[in-house]
Design a protein around this nucleic acid. Structure first.
Lengths: 229, 229
DNA sequence: GCAAAAGTGTTAGGTGTACACCCATGA
DNA sequence: TCATGGGTGTACACCTAACACTTTTGC
């Protein structure tokens, strides 16, 4: 391949992943205690350097898979952060992504192996560098996306109940939602299938399980429907 | 500075700028005919490589200033594009920004010097690489931003008329707006100052000039007001 | 039988949208 | 005086948000 750009600078480019899961009625983020320098022992998001022959998406997928054991997760780019002195090591451009995972699929053994931990997003302390900013921007983006696309399902298991779903949305928006209005909207979207089975783990009466019909959603989207929740 | 990341790859990182201006009732984008290889002679957005000791914002400002002669422009990041084979030269991560400029401030001489051209966004042909995608994503973002923040004023001169402003919004949204509803919303925002002077260039009666009161907008924003237009 | 969570409709107020005429002026 | 673009108010449809009681069942 011809070398056109020889006189230009080359920089380190890393991908930082905000890996989010839903548990105990709150969004949690996977945080690691760094085992290596620089900033050994401090709390950090998951990251990895982008390799010469690796697409950004593949870097993210690699990092997410490494720390969670899950592939094919929903992810979206938050943005690129490139201040000269944002990394204390050397100049590193960081491209930030968030990933939504179903915690039931999480490989618990990886938690200890990587010295990682699921932290309630309302209880995240100081992270290294500008990682708190990444998290802040991610949550803002997540709220905007959630309002226009049904991405929340990526945080839930295949089968979930409406109380669970509402609790998830309340955790995302950080405010209580009206039960009847919420259910009305969900019903209008018309992309859920009600199952016969009930979840009795959190009440005596039990709540019906539902399933997200992705095919139906894709079809409606193609027809130009607009979602909001 | 300690070298922690020696074993990692370093990559070329460029910034590509979608420079937008408003003219003849339509948004225009500054397009260049490349004078150098690779892809000499083809149409391209403005770009520049990020230097080792240069913040991303500074790279954008440098590129925008170089091609327009204007400093301190409104800019926002669109995203990072990093597919391995997106550039035909070598692997280059591109971080895309759009910039909104007041065409009255544009230094016309730069148009010829750089072999550049203002092209109506409805009439942009094939650009190199993934630059058409950049433009598409930018316009989508611009519409979303315009709907929630009064950024349109960056595309107009200090003094402008309401018909001009409406025409701008119609160009951004690519659809006609109702005159009365538009003016009602503008009035509700309450961030314009009506001047005594009139613009008689486009009608006999003349339209009153207005001025965007940035200080008032900033104040209202701080108080938590929400804008939409 | 009772505690605890699941499930279900209606109304009022506010917001968005459609719509038509008079005004000012230069030629 | 007339052609041209500037400027103004109202009514209806729709959507959002507030609100309370009944059902089920394990203990």
């Amino acid at each position: 391949m011809t070398q056109f750009y020889l006189q230009e600078d080359k920089l380190y480019v890393s991908v930082d992943c905000i890996i989010l899961g839903f548990r105990d009625n709150d969004i949690h983020v996977l945080i690691i205690n760094r085992k290596y320098e620089p900033l050994k022992g401090e709390r950090s998001l998951m990251g990895g350097f982008v390799r010469e022959k690796e697409n950004l998406n593949d870097t993210v997928a690699r990092v997410v898979s490494e720390y969670t054991g899950i592939d094919n997760v929903y992810m979206e780019q938050v943005g690129a952060y490139g201040d000269v002195k944002r990394d204390i090591g050397e100049r590193v451009i960081s491209i930030v992504y968030y990933a939504l995972i179903d915690l039931q699929l999480f490989d618990e053994r990886l938690e200890k192996r990587h010295n990682a931990e699921w932290v309630n997003i309302n209880d995240v302390g100081k992270l290294i560098l500008d990682h708190n900013l990444f998290l802040h921007d991610t949550l803002e983006l997540l709220r905007r996306r959630t309002a226009t696309r049904p991405i929340g399902f990526n945080l839930l298991p295949e089968k979930f109940t409406l109380p669970q779903l509402q609790s998830l949305y309340e955790a995302i928006y950080q405010r209580p939602l009206d039960k009847r209005n919420f259910r009305k909207k969900v019903a209008e979207m018309d992309i859920l299938e009600k199952l016969d089975e009930k979840d009795k783990s959190s009440s005596k009466r039990g709540a019906y399980y539902y399933r997200f019909i992705k095919e139906k959603y894709d079809r409606l989207l193609k027809e130009g429907f607009y979602f909001s929740l």
